[in-house]
Design a protein around this nucleic acid. Structure first.
Ligand SMILES: [Mn+2]
Ligand SMILES: [Mn+2]
Ligand SMILES: [Mn+2]
Ligand SMILES: [Mn+2]
Lengths: 234, 234
DNA sequence: TAATATTTTTAGAGTGGTCTAAACCATCTA
DNA sequence: TAGATGGTTTAGACCACTCTAAAAATATTA
């Protein structure tokens, strides 16, 4: 049996790996899980003994196949819970993350199945993040890129929004920017402030930190809606 | 902040107190929480330091007002969850207890409110146990008595069923005996086997352990349904 | 390359929760 | 009323997780 603490470490390593690729540094993990680097080193040792991470001293850590499966399991719980809270318990977009963080370690497989069934097996969570399938097969690469990496004038569709900061999410909810929203980039100011135009609305100026939370894909030429991955959002 | 372990001890003490009155013995707590008596002694010390239990060495323990409030909080979570699982996630009567046990320590007050709202503020759980109100005021005494304490020939209505044993619950579900069911006691055999007749069905013989799990009230003379406390059952 | 700065690990300690074994206390029985 | 009995507490240990401070390794910069 794995403790919820261990599950959190594995989840953190998975998510860091997804961004920057392996190996993942001790300090990056420490920042993510909110512990000291010394604590992380010691936990990585026990995780290594259990065959969940591979590790090279002073270099960094990487999930084993087994470790990745555990991480995917936790992520599936987290994201199904986020969907369920938004869809069936009337939570706002910005509220689901913390509740899911607390619950993800404590639901049974039965609960997972029933929640997935109640939601009709969703494939993305309210923030646009993909939900691992029940068999926990690896998630495919994400083709979305940061909003700020696109040119002024281009039309993009919002793919994912980082669920880490509640205030950013509330800001975006007010601005009408959620996964699936089509944006035209009007301006990118020197220090990161991004101005966008939503489909049939006025312009919005997004502070750097908020803009950084948004991942997008190029908008399809034709009039059709969002591409792969439907949105299960509130 | 209280750990989930502490919450479990307080819940156990509360439930033991409700049956036999204070004080509660170390060994009774140990049996309930599944730890050794030595472990319980040491936990009772820390609970006492925190002002949650009062204790007399070698005599037993008793909840303080504050400890009782915590216990009621946990019980409210547990029983609301049981209702929700049965009502909205299609769990069977016999399945809800374990899931609720795992979740009860990890839901937020926000979650509690939303679940209560989704259920329309239920007052009893699927086993007939009362749900503490949101303000956590003390539960009133239970007027139900064990089925086996009643005379042969009397008509009674099932008030509560112990939710501890899954198999017993499945047995009773098959037999059509749930909170609110009206029974006539047909026979009580020397070694505890109880035979009952359900309203419009055949007779059922219940093994001693199953019969012991049932609490009942005398059936009202008139034709009306169950008395105080409606049933929120699946 | 040598000195310096940063990151990582080690050393050592502390907390919370648990156990076993031994001592202790209260009560029941002879 | 004096054991014997059985429940309770103490003593001592252990494990999981965490921290701070110091040492070691790596990376950066001059
Ligand atoms: Mn699962
Ligand atoms: Mn999310
Ligand atoms: Mn509560
Ligand atoms: Mn119950």
């Amino acid at each position: 049996m794995l403790s919820d603490v261990m599950e959190d470490y594995l989840k953190a390593i998975y998510q860091l790996q997804a961004r920057t690729g392996p190996p993942v540094s001790t300090s990056a993990i420490a920042d993510t899980v909110g512990k000291t680097p010394a604590t992380v080193t010691s936990m990585l040792e026990t995780l290594e003994e259990r065959g969940l991470v591979a590790r090279e001293k002073y270099k960094g850590a990487e999930l084993t196949a087994e470790g990745e499966t555990v991480a995917l399991e936790v992520l599936r719980h987290h994201r199904l819970l986020e969907c369920y809270l938004a869809e069936h318990l009337d939570y706002a977009w910005s509220e689901v993350h913390e509740e899911a963080d607390a619950l993800e370690h404590h639901i049974s497989e039965e609960f997972e199945r029933r929640v997935a069934a109640a939601l009709d097996d969703p494939v993305v969570d309210p923030h646009g993040d993909p939900i691992p399938s029940a068999d926990l097969s690896p998630l495919d690469e994400d083709d979305a890129t940061p909003l700020t990496a696109h040119d002024v004038g281009s039309r993009v569709v919002v793919s994912r929004v980082s669920d880490r900061d509640r205030e950013e999410l509330e800001y975006l909810a007010d601005a009408g920017v959620t996964p699936g929203t089509v944006l035209e980039i009007v301006d990118i100011a020197p220090f990161g402030m991004v101005t966008v135009r939503t489909e049939d609305e006025a312009e919005q100026s997004l502070p750097e930190s908020v803009a950084d939370a948004i991942s997008v894909r190029p908008a399809a030429e034709a009039g059709a809606a969002a591409g792969p991955g439907e949105v299960t959002d509130a």
